[in-house]
Design a protein around this nucleic acid. Structure first.
Length: 735
DNA sequence: CTAGTCAGGCTTTTT
DNA sequence: GCCTGACTAG
């Protein structure tokens, strides 16, 4: 293991020549074009370590920008092996958004911004847009808040403020008017949305050259991961910050650009080469992740995309097993196939469930999969969909905290002013909004007048019941504001939960209520973990974390996630489900070749997550909005060479004609006959007593072969009837 | 004012 | 098929 040739620098140990060249690149702009699994993160990390240890840069002068918080955390962890803890702490490592948030907090005054601004996430933005629509007397049925949000975000990403928003259509005129009032209301509430974080930082630097100069001097080395995903604002930021020292080190892969819709522009790769003419180019073509079979399939899938530079990717991992294409009857059958195969992989190939991932195009597809996992009694980890921070109870509690933090935040207050119900209804709300608007004061001021805390015109037009309800609510908030000073965030949460009646409101005795309460306790635990954080910091951090960031590595359970969230991750076995026309590629892509190219890249990202085994599945019938419909295999499947694949390869066309009865379809569905199922010897019999580690003891009701596995139905004493797969559920005979 | 029922729209993808 | 918003009875 010990090599006789002593390498002078441990930082370069174990790097291949291509990686080494990139890591040791001389000063000046650098662009590393890296294929999937080529050790991008490694190169980035080692470059940072190299700059500190070999080139003598202070960690304080280095900024590394990643795409997700998870990537940032991973980078820090890797750096801890190469640098001293003190050095790692002094580095600036984070996402664009988090980094900008910090800069803005520090420089708030220059921009005339409140230092205690609150970050509005997508749901908050929607709520605010709805409020704006009401004020402007616009019908939210006609002007979808989600579409308006998208339009506003797009403008901000392109650094277009409301006053510069030009319009040529009636709809665009509406957008402009909504954007204008949205932005004003946002500021009145001391709020910044995601796009603001970037746009305002760019503006800060553009309009205040002395501030820019300070940051240029501080960050002499800038490193960027996933460069292909930068949008106009982010790129402008890089250009500004790197404008003096030109030491911008970008790593990216245009074939993995999947955020066009979010404003990402892979043409920034070209722009970068124009704006920094002395840029040095490095290629990383060796793939360390996947087998030859998987890598070849991936390249075959991406090749048809126009205007790309072909990379000569290669791997030394050997051929590996073939890719399995599986056609299931419907989405439930597809999900069962996935669960059973994961079980089989664990049994026969030593691939742990935790090393498997199940991917899909849309979040809606996760339901059928989840149900299959639950039925089999197999734990799973779900990324996205019902995101923790988007759950109602979490948003409610955060709204309470925000109100205590900034009582003039009407968007948050509106959310919880009557949750739990305390007699403040629609009429009272309308009165508050109108009066506040008419007198041009925050609602909070009005509330204080109602309670008599503040001098002002008497509140006319309020009934005595409403008045009492409002005064009581104001008293609660006032109490928390006063208490907040001396309390940790966790203690404040405890008090709010109790005094607001929210605890009792959630714990209504139902199963759902228990779950919600558990989520609330989890948030309180998060707060307790960060006991040193002030309420301001806590709220800021919470708004910027996403689900992938908190992916626990420990539990041995498969991960369910969208293809988008899969970026940057790797798994021994990957299942890509729903390979159907209209789903992958998605319906929206058919009119626009650009979008179609992005769908292809998305599929490419999915394939290249797999190290050893790749499964591509589809359902012959799929339920869309409660209607079961026939599907057609994804056109992408045809691009994978037949010799890389076993199983059902399209070409003969799976879709049966219309007017065929369900029974005939079942026969026509080739998967039905081609599934070999040698029934295993059954281990359990009805009547037997069994024990399960989490469900406790129970009696077997039924046991039957399911594929190559055994499915047992058990009536547990504590939790009732469950269906379990023997290979997963750690079921023992008892009694 | 609340709690219940019902109709209609909805699904890309996320920092 | 699920969630949101509108409507209705108490």
């Amino acid at each position: 293991m010990l090599s006789p040739s002593v390498d002078p620098s441990p930082i370069l140990n174990g790097l291949n020549p291509q990686q080494r060249a990139a890591v040791t690149a001389p000063d000046g702009p650098v662009l590393v074009l890296a294929g999937p699994g080529s050790g991008k993160t490694r190169v980035l990390t080692h470059r940072v370590a190299y700059l500190v240890r070999e080139r003598g840069f202070s960690p304080y002068r280095i900024m590394a920008v990643t795409f997700t918080n998870k990537a940032a955390r991973e980078m820090r962890e890797r750096l801890e092996a190469l640098l001293s803890p003190a050095d790692v702490r002094r580095l600036t490592v984070g996402t664009f958004h988090a980094t900008c948030a910090r800069i803005l907090r520090r420089e708030a005054e220059v921009l005339g911004l409140s230092r205690n601004y609150v970050i509005f996430d997508a749901a908050d933005q929607i709520a605010l847009i709805k409020q704006v629509l009401r004020t402007l007397n616009l019908d939210e049925k006609k002007y979808a808040p989600a579409a308006l949000r998208q339009a506003i975000a797009k403008a901000k990403q392109e650094l277009i403020p409301p006053e510069a928003y030009t319009t040529s259509t009636y709809y665009a005129e509406i957008v402009r008017r909504v954007y204008e009032l949205y932005q004003r209301t946002l500021r009145d509430n001391d709020g910044l949305d995601f796009a603001d974080l970037l746009m305002l930082t760019v503006r800060l630097f553009q309009e205040h050259p002395s501030v820019l100069a300070r940051y240029q001097e501080r960050y002499q080395q800038i490193l960027v991961d996933e460069f292909q995903d930068t949008n106009t604002a982010q790129y402008a930021l890089l250009r500004l910050l790197g404008g003096r020292h030109h030491n911008v080190f970008c790593v990216g892969d245009e074939d993995q650009s999947v955020y066009l819709w979010r404003g990402a522009d892979y043409r920034n790769l070209l722009r970068f080469r124009q704006d920094f003419p002395q840029v040095r180019l490095y290629l990383l073509e060796q793939n360390y992740r996947s087998t030859e079979t998987i890598l070849e399939a991936a390249q075959a899938v991406i090749r048809p995309n126009p205007n790309r530079v072909e990379k000569a990717l290669f791997t030394r991992r050997g051929r590996g097993p073939k890719i399995v294409v599986h056609e299931a009857y419907n989405e439930e059958d597809e999900a069962r196939y996935v669960v059973e195969t994961i079980a089989r992989l664990a049994r026969e190939e030593g691939i742990r469930p935790g090393e498997c991932a199940v991917m899909y195009r849309t979040n809606a597809q996760s339901r059928a999969l989840e149900e299959a996992f639950v039925q089999a009694g197999m734990p799973y980890r779900l990324v996205g969909a019902t995101r923790f921070y988007q759950r109602r109870e979490i948003k409610d509690l955060l709204a309470y905290l925000r109100v205590v933090h900034t009582p003039t935040d009407w968007v948050s207050m509106r959310r919880i002013i009557n949750v739990p119900p305390r007699g403040i209804g629609a009429k009272t709300l309308a009165w508050l909004e109108q009066t506040a608007h008419r007198e041009d004061v925050p609602v909070w001021t009005l509330l204080r007048r109602v309670r008599g805390d503040e001098e002002g015109p008497p509140p006319a037009g309020l009934g005595s019941r409403a008045r009492r309800a409002l005064a009581a609510f104001t008293g609660l908030v006032q109490g928390w504001i006063e208490a907040a000073e001396g309390l940790t965030v966790a203690e404040l949460i405890r008090r709010i939960l109790e005094e607001s009646g929210y605890a009792a409101y959630v714990q209504d005795g139902s199963e759902e209520g228990r779950e919600r309460w558990a989520n609330i306790l989890e948030l309180r635990n998060v707060a307790a973990d960060y006991a040193h954080l002030t309420l301001t910091d806590f709220l800021a951090d919470v708004a910027l974390v996403s689900d992938v960031d908190n992916l626990e590595e420990t539990a041995d359970a498969p991960t369910l996630l969208t293809l988008h969230s899969a970026k940057g991750l790797e798994f021994r076995a990957v299942f890509i489900t729903g390979l159907e026309e209209g789903l992958l590629p998605h319906q929206h892509a058919f009119e626009d070749p650009e979008e179609m190219a992005e769908e292809r890249r998305l599929f490419y990202v999915g394939i290249t997550r797999a190290k050893d085994r790749l499964y591509l599945t589809r359902a012959f019938r799929r339920t869309v909005w409660g209607q079961s419909e026939l599907t057609r295999p994804s056109c992408f499947l045809e691009d994978i060479p037949g010799e890389l694949v076993v199983g059902h390869h399209p070409g003969a066309g799976g879709g049966a004609g219309g007017g065929v009865g369900a029974f005939k379809e079942m026969l026509a569905w080739s998967g039905a006959s081609s599934r070999p199922a040698p029934p295993p010897a059954l281990q359990f019999r009805p009547g037997q007593r069994v024990r399960h580690p989490t469900f406790g003891e129970g009696v077997v009701l039924e046991s039957r072969a399911r594929g190559s596995d055994e499915e047992v139905t058990v009536n547990f004493e504590e939790v009732g009837t469950k269906r379990l797969l023997v290979s997963f559920a750690r079921l023992e005979r008892a009694g």
